[in-house]
Write a protein that binds this DNA or RNA. Structure first.
Lengths: 107, 107
DNA sequence: TCGGTATTTAAGTAATAGCTTACACACGCG
DNA sequence: CGCGTGTGTAAGCTATTACTTAAATACCGA
């Protein structure tokens, strides 16, 4: 959970997730969408992967990155339910959606 | 939105929110729950307040802090819906819950 | 095998975040 | 008024983060 929130604190990383929400992309395709250097993007991708928000698969020379939407939804929804009494009514639905995704670890 | 995620990236600040989820507390009561100095806690509270996640009200010498649950739920639910196709079915319910809370600004 | 492309690792630097102590301010009460 | 308490501000230190360039690794195709 710490790693997830840490990962989400960067605008660049949130933008990467937004791109991956539409389609899987290679490291190079992602880097091309930013003005910063490729190694910088690669480091951001590592942070996202360590947080469990994306996964990577090497295909030949290319590394394809994919969003792990369940991890994101599970962690954020879980946190909101934990802190906000207001959202408790949604608990059941959200849990159902989280489905087979792994539970977020405690702080 | 940036400020919200930035605020949530700190374990101390998330813990503060957790305390405030149960009851309103004064700055001193919050500080007493941590081992760090009072000024440090005060700075964390400023970050949370700037993010719109808490509000403060001065009563005599004391400053009472209160969680703004709608802001937290609204921002996080909104972000999840934006990035995770999986959670789109919940959109309507979440929007209803968000209710009168202000919309999160774009990145 | 050689050369080019895709990606990551390494090393170094600059900006930022979080902490501490010391101080300042505001309030309530004797 | 003057003192103690609650809180926030200021200044300074340290550690971490985000970036850069240069180099290493891995793969494909001629």
């Amino acid at each position: 959970m710490q790693r997830v929130f840490e990962a989400l604190s960067s605008p660049v990383r949130r933008k990467i997730l937004a791109y991956l929400a539409h389609a899987d992309l290679t490291a190079g395709e992602i880097a091309a969408r930013f003005e910063i250097s490729k190694p910088a993007v690669s480091q951001h991708l590592s942070v996202l992967e360590n947080a469990g928000l994306v996964t990577s698969e090497k295909k030949g020379q290319f590394v394809h990155y994919r969003l792990v939407a369940e991890a994101l939804a599970n962690t954020l929804n879980g946190y909101v339910q934990e802190v906000c009494p207001v959202s408790r009514p949604l608990k059941k639905e959200s849990a159902a959606l989280a489905g087979k995704a792994s539970r977020p670890t405690s702080d």
